[in-house]
């Protein structure tokens, strides 16, 4: 038995529900810090940015599941739904902090943001694209929709992930390294899919 097979064997016995519990801990911790002065003199921006960054990290993690299977033969697909739903949870909280705490439901300014500011529009579109994905992240939807339609809905994760990373880079001043890295990683992970498919088609034609 190879190492990958042995890892896969052990992973099958790991339940997914503790992942949801662990995944919510950073959010709870951030809220606690924000309420007790631990996020510095401007906790709203800090909370907004940290939640957004965790959402990006979880999106990266969810996009890594297939490449890990391809490269290392380690199968983490059972955990992907949990990672994706957590990412969506952080996206929604990030948006809620923007609406309720940052702009304090100032609808005039929110309306202006959503019509005039490209990076906000891009963030909002990415959030909207993730809603059908989150809503169909359950066994019943997979059965009811059939795998082709379900797959097409979940394809939305790719543009949403690139959109979310571009939203971050577009927001910042100058060219800091971190958002550039997020965007590069996201584009790389998404581009991997069609590139791999093309390579395999070519292989099959040669064979």
């Amino acid at each position: 038995m190879t190492l990958a097979q042995r890892i896969n064997g052990s992973l099958r016995r790991v339940p997914t529900w503790p992942g949801y519990v662990l995944g919510v801990i950073p959010a709870a911790w951030l809220w606690y810090l924000g309420l007790t002065g631990g996020l510095g003199p401007e906790p709203v921006k800090a909370l907004e940015h940290e939640l957004g960054k965790i959402a990006l990290q979880l999106l990266v993690a969810s996009l890594c599941v297939s490449p890990i299977l391809w490269v290392a033969r380690v199968n983490l697909i059972r955990f992907r739904r949990m990672i994706g739903l957590l990412a969506f949870f952080y996206v929604v909280m990030h948006f809620a902090v923007y609406l309720f705490l940052d702009l304090r439901l100032n609808w005039a300014q929110i309306g202006e943001d959503l019509t005039k500011r490209p990076y906000i529009i891009l963030g909002a579109i990415s959030l909207l694209a993730l809603i059908p994905v989150a809503l169909t992240s359950n066994d019943r939807s997979v059965r009811r929709l059939g795998s082709a339609l379900w797959g097409r809905i979940h394809w939305l994760v790719y543009p949403a992930s690139i959109g979310a990373a571009a939203h971050y880079l577009w927001l910042v001043k100058a060219w800091p390294l971190e958002p550039i890295l997020y965007l590069a990683i996201m584009v790389g992970l998404v581009a991997w899919r069609p590139l791999r498919k093309a390579a395999r088609t070519r292989q099959r034609q040669v064979a």
Binding site: L35, P41, P43, K45, Q109, P118
Partner: peptide
């Protein structure tokens, strides 16, 4: 990329 109509007051908390 953002409005200048209003500002966050630093130190005001969450």
């Amino acid at each position: 990329r953002w409005s200048q109509a209003t500002e966050r007051v630093v130190g005001g908390g969450l």
